[in-house]
Design a protein around this nucleic acid. Structure first.
Lengths: 164, 164
DNA sequence: CTTGAGAGCTTGAACGCTCAACTGTTGCTC
DNA sequence: GAGCAACAGTTGAGCGTTCAAGCTCTCAAG
């Protein structure tokens, strides 16, 4: 029960690390998503889509790019964008360069919904995450998480890119 | 765009930290859950339930406790346990001390399913998480995540408990 | 006792994600 | 320029979670 180095088992240290990482991130995300749902009626993941679109040139992006940027599937993007269109937060436009493609364009209403929600999310982020961490802790956390990302399939686009 | 200290905004550092944390954990979890689903046909969260039950005295736990241990709702536990009963991995027993309560008991088949799956999960955990981290990095990650947990509502039961 | 507040758990509907087809377009090759 | 594989996106069914009731049981007070 002490210092097993078998590749089949985790050491007590590793297990504690894994559980702390899993629990803290899950608890933080569910807390923030719950706030977003209550305060703004946003389905999980909606906020992220609005942010990505708002940071894009012309507030527009192809479905494909949205899927990659959110690390999820094209199918999910189709469904999610459909809901956003119903809300009036996004409009669809044909893609000029490829007749297969579609653009999702953030509307003024969508931008407004994002602007109205952002302060609350940031408040939650401070309260639940950054207020408990020293600057060094936060920097360490960033460094370690980017190291994890670098080894994860599909995680390459996130960390060291100049556009971030 | 440089060093905003407004409480309404995140600094560039904070934003990068938040995004790295969010992306790395999300990507890691979805990867592991996908493996679990493919290799063992386990629905998301199933593995965690089996682990918790297997670590309990008599492999049994009340529904209520399962909900707390997994940081989720009683309703989810009811549905999830029902699926596990259908699989033959869990049996239900009446609670001797409280007629309102139910015990979920891990069966031998459930223990077997867990034992058959654990090596694969641990393999994935090593490949995607620990192999890229030095021992110091892992210890730092644990310390920081436990600090986050400590400030999160409901996160108290996780880190420093003797039973861990 | 009996009454009432609250705990423990369940139920069923609504909702979002996933997965496996499927449609239409592009671009390469012969 | 005809054929064909790969790409972009959609569709619909299946499934797990969430949320708001609802039911049974407990416990303490009168």
């Amino acid at each position: 029960m002490a210092t097993a180095t078998s590749p089949q088992l985790l050491t007590a240290e590793e297990q504690a690390t894994w559980r702390a990482f899993a629990r803290s991130s899950r608890l933080l995300f569910t807390q923030l998503e719950r706030d977003l749902s209550r305060d703004a009626g946003m389905a999980p993941g909606t906020y992220e889509l609005l942010v990505i679109l708002s940071e894009s040139p012309a507030r527009a992006m192809r479905m494909n790019e949205l899927a990659e940027a959110t690390l999820t599937s094209p199918s999910r993007i189709t469904h999610a964008v459909e809901r956003l269109v119903d809300l009036g937060w996004v409009e669809r436009a044909t893609c000029p360069s490829d007749r297969r493609g579609w653009l999702a364009v953030l509307t003024d209403a969508g931008q407004g919904a994002l602007a109205a929600t952002a302060p609350r999310l940031i408040e939650g982020l401070r309260a639940h995450l950054f207020d408990g961490l020293s600057k060094d802790d936060a920097a360490e956390l960033r460094r370690i998480c980017e190291a994890i990302l670098a080894r994860l399939p599909g995680g390459a686009a996130a960390g060291g890119c100049p556009g971030a």
